[in-house]
């Protein structure tokens, strides 16, 4: 009973906020609706008993990815009139994309109606380990059976990170860098001098 109510609540809100994400005029509102969609998706994960995935979804997507989205989108200076100006020009491309998505949806529903694929029987390693919380179960699988896939994913992310740094890093000659060690080690005696000049005579620094 309560599960059904919670499921329909989360599912409706996910679909609704997903729809508003693409319908909202203001991109910042779009991102905020997207965050609501992530949040409700996490709720759905909790309902199927995957609390670890749900928490990761909130931490990674809501806590980090969406903050960066918001960060970028907030700084955009958008002219809404200009945004809608290219409607006729971009209409054919948009129509083609919409048609592809519609075709995929129809095929997806058709395949679903035709009955599920037979994926073969899972062997012992993929079966959920009895008596473990799903955090421990995911860990046990990731670090044994899927170790190479896991490490490959890690290396791909590392390469992507280094690539992003290399692409955006530039040396600029006109910037004075901070040297924290010299800032910290500077003492008042080095920074100030005490002079007592005679009246009418200036000081040379």
């Amino acid at each position: 009973m309560i599960q059904a109510i919670a499921f329909y609540l989360f599912a409706t809100l996910t679909i609704f906020s997903g729809a508003v994400t693409i319908l909202a005029r203001n991109p910042v509102h779009s991102v905020l609706w997207l965050i609501l969609a992530f949040f409700n998706a996490a709720g759905l994960m909790i309902l199927i008993g995957a609390e670890f995935i749900a928490m990761l979804l909130v931490i990674v997507y809501v806590g980090a990815v969406a903050v960066l989205f918001l960060f970028v989108v907030m700084m955009l200076d958008i002219d809404f009139a200009q945004l809608r100006a290219g409607f006729i020009k971009n209409f054919p491309l948009g129509f083609a994309l919409a048609f592809v998505f519609l075709a995929e949806l129809v095929m997806g529903v058709g395949a679903y109606k035709a009955g599920g694929l037979v994926l073969g029987t899972p062997d012992a390693a993929t079966a959920p380990v009895a008596g473990l919380s799903n955090t421990a179960a995911i860990g046990a699988l990731l670090y044994s059976r899927y170790l190479f896939l896991f490490e490959t994913a890690g290396i791909i992310l590392l390469v992507a990170m280094i690539g992003a740094i290399v692409l955006t890093h530039r040396q600029r000659g006109d910037v004075r860098g901070q040297k924290p060690s010299s800032q910290i080690s500077r003492r008042p005696e080095e920074a100030t001098i005490n002079l007592q000049p005679e009246v009418g005579k200036g000081v040379t620094l």
Partner: peptide, 21 residues
């Protein structure tokens, strides 16, 4: 719950939205 600490991390990561919004 058995993911209590992750829950706290998740909730505290939401705190930034109040300020940003």
């Amino acid at each position: 719950i058995n993911v209590g600490l992750l829950y706290i991390l998740a909730i505290s990561s939401l705190g930034v939205y109040g300020i940003v919004i």
